[in-house]
Amino acid sequence: MVFFAASLLLIFIGLYAALVKRNLIKIIIGLSIMDTGVNMLIISLGFVKGRTAPIISLKDLFKKGSLLVDVSKVVDPLPQALVLTAIVIGVAVTAMALSVVIRMYSVKKSIEIDDFKELKW
């Protein structure tokens, strides 16, 4: 539960940055924190007490005498796979956001939101 709460806290800190901060880079950092929180949350969803990582390099993780793995010995591998993808996607979005901000800086010489409020009502 602690893990869940901590991850949620990270997510909301990231969201808070997007809602409150005026500096564009800080907002991007906030989004990045949010991504991290989400990934942590997903990983903790997959954890099972007392089991080991899903790397089968030892013989005693198998069921007796076959190539079938003993499920009760291994943590859930699926969330880990999902997080792998999610991390990469997060990186991609951050990269795009940063390039947009670099361009914005070159246009307005500022990275504060107040200078970018021309599209409105």
Binding site: P54, I55, I56, L68, V69, V74, Q80, A81, L84
Partner: peptide
């Protein structure tokens, strides 16, 4: 369970 049988790779992920 069937990760090794179907893939033969140690890393299930």
């Amino acid at each position: 369970e069937r990760g090794i049988v179907e893939n033969r790779g140690s890393n299930l992920v």
